[in-house]
Amino acid sequence: MESGKLIVSSSPHQFTAISTPIIMSDVLFALMPACFAGVWFFGLRALGMIAACVGSAVVTEALLQKLCGKPITVSDYSAAVTGLLLALVVPPDLPIWVGVFGSVFSISIAKFTFGGLGHNIFNPALIGRAFLLASWPVFMTKWRWPIQEAPWMPGFDAVTTATPLVLMKHFNVKVPYNMLFFGKVAGTIGETSAIAILLGAAYLMYRGHIGIRIPFSFIGTVVVITALFGQDPLFHVLTGGLLLGAFFMATDYVTSPVTPKGKVAYGIGCGVLVALIRLYGGYPEGVCYAILIMNAATALIERYTLPRKFGEVKKLA
């Protein structure tokens, strides 16, 4: 052995070239179909909202980091992803300034005050949405059917209406699957088109950035519970923010567990909460709160699902 040339270092010993900017730019790319669908269905206004949210998120992060004398890290795209996700979960007719406030809140309160990327307990985009819903409930619950398409009211350009979940919960109207699948329904900018979200999710899975544990246990739980309660599970999967939430929000690296068993537990927890809120809650949709609540439980889940170390022997009771 060549003594003196032995390099002693702590783990990890293996490195890959995958870094935060690569992952985040892939996420941005994966969200493009959903953005495109949003702009297609809700008009250029949706594009304005997306631009405003992304822009204000990036500017907020850069300003705060400059003010506090920290290195400016907007080039890792994480702020842009937060802004984009926020824009995708707000209604298309939301005043732009409200979206900007949400974006600033996401970055400054939900991310920066906790210490920046990697330290935030809660998903910043969802905190932004929860903040907007609590602050401007009137704006945040005004839904519009996509331009030109309102099957029961022909002859109007745009119809203010309820989301499919509200229609089903309170009016017993069921929107057909094909409309839900392509996204010609009322909803937030990015959540309506199932196919666009699935395309993006497939890309992220192909690139290996998200696993199957969280999204599938999440959606699977919703399917099982809604089926058990005599509802139509496919309808519940296709409506609301479930797909967007399960693939893009719940899988956020920072706020979800890292242990394999923990991921499944986390997904199941999200699914149970979504199903409960949808079936029994006061709100028609519960993906946002379900994920935020499970974010809070992440540390606990990790603690109880730590894998055994190599060679560790199970403790005798």
Binding site: T113, F131, S135, W136, P137, V138
Partner: peptide
């Protein structure tokens, strides 16, 4: 109509107090 209702809800209290202390 423009007011952020959250400011007079409990979370608004915690956040405002935290920011002021900071």
């Amino acid at each position: 109509g423009l007011a952020a209702v959250m400011a007079i809800l409990p979370p608004g209290g915690f956040i405002t107090l935290g920011l002021l202390i900071g």
